[in-house]
Amino acid sequence: MKRLIMSVLCLIVLSGCQSAYYATMEKFGVHKREILVDRVEATKESQQASQQEFQSALERLSTLINFDGGELQSVYDQLNDDYQASLQSAQLVTSNIDKVEDVANALFNEWQDELEQYSSEKLKRASSRQLNDTQRQFERLLRSMRSSEAKMQPVLDSLQDNVLFLKHNLNAQAISAIKGEFNTLKRDISALIADMNRSIEDSNKFIEEMNATRS
């Protein structure tokens, strides 16, 4: 039975029909609120992994710039691998943020619709306040996530430029030519990691707040 459920869910996810996915999960007792918390957690973890990939690429480039003998091609190949890993991890971060935003919108729309079902004005007002508070908290989190996401592309562009330049100019002169850009890239990656850390902290706070209101 579990395998059947997982197969159905996989088909729904692959088809891209999120509303059907949420409806199916709801039938099994997993609500949008729980999915939102899970997706925020997944985004946080992908940001942490992305930080490591960017840092690894920076360290590899530093090794190449300070190269003092040995096989240049081997170090370049490792740098290219680090760039590709950074690109994939950044794409996963973006995908996860999109999923977070999608389920949050579905949750808030559902919540708003349900306000009209109350017969008690007192409970309706209380639920409405809670909805507004949760939306504000989420909007802060989403801004934080999107801010760090926006800093990834310039770093990826810079890494790609360096990798492409070295691909056909793998010599001491080419390495010397990219030294001037290294400090800028180092600064940008440091700013990106700091921004991601703020977003990760915001994610932790949001998860705590969501869990606190549920308990």
Rank of each mutant, 00 (worst) to 15 (best):
K2C: 11
R3Y: 13
L4M: 15
I5L: 11
I5P: 08
M6V: 12
S7D: 10
V8G: 11
L9Q: 04
L9T: 15
C10Y: 15
L11E: 15
V13H: 05
V13T: 10
V13Q: 08
L14T: 14
G16D: 01
G16P: 02
G16E: 01
C17P: 08
A20G: 04
Y21S: 02
Y22R: 05
A23H: 13
T24M: 15
T24P: 06
T24K: 07
E26F: 12
K27E: 12
F28Q: 13
H31P: 06
K32E: 05
R33K: 15
E34D: 13
E34T: 09
D38W: 05
D38M: 11
R39V: 08
R39C: 10
K44N: 09
K44M: 09
Q47D: 10
Q51L: 04
Q52F: 11
F54T: 01
F54R: 01
S56M: 11
A57S: 08
E59M: 09
R60W: 04
S62R: 09
I65E: 02
D68F: 08
G70I: 02
L72C: 09
Q73I: 06
Q73S: 06
Y83A: 02
Q88H: 08
Q88E: 08
L92C: 08
S95I: 05
N96S: 07
N96M: 09
I97S: 00
D98I: 09
D98V: 14
K99T: 10
V100E: 02
V100P: 02
V100K: 00
D102I: 07
A104G: 02
N109E: 09
E110L: 12
E110Q: 14
Q112D: 12
E114H: 07
Q117W: 12
E121C: 12
K122G: 09
K122A: 05
A126N: 12
A126D: 06
S128T: 14
R129G: 07
Q130C: 11
Q130I: 09
D133N: 15
D133A: 14
T134S: 06
Q135P: 00
Q137D: 10
Q137C: 08
F138G: 00
F138Y: 03
F138N: 00
L141R: 00
R143W: 13
R143Y: 12
M145I: 08
M145V: 11
R146S: 01
S148F: 01
S148C: 13
E149D: 11
A150W: 03
K151W: 05
K151S: 08
Q153G: 01
Q153V: 01
P154G: 09
D157M: 06
Q160V: 10
D161I: 12
F165R: 03
L166T: 03
H168S: 07
H168Q: 12
H168L: 07
A172Q: 14
A172D: 15
Q173R: 08
A174R: 02
I178R: 03
N183Y: 14
K186Q: 14
R187L: 14
R187D: 11
D188T: 03
D188M: 05
I189W: 02
S190I: 12
S190P: 05
A191F: 02
A191W: 06
L192Q: 00
L192G: 03
I193H: 03
A194Q: 11
E201Y: 03
E201A: 04
K205L: 06
F206I: 04
I207C: 00
N211G: 01
A212P: 06
A212R: 02
T213Q: 14
T213M: 15
S215M: 14
S215A: 15
S215N: 15
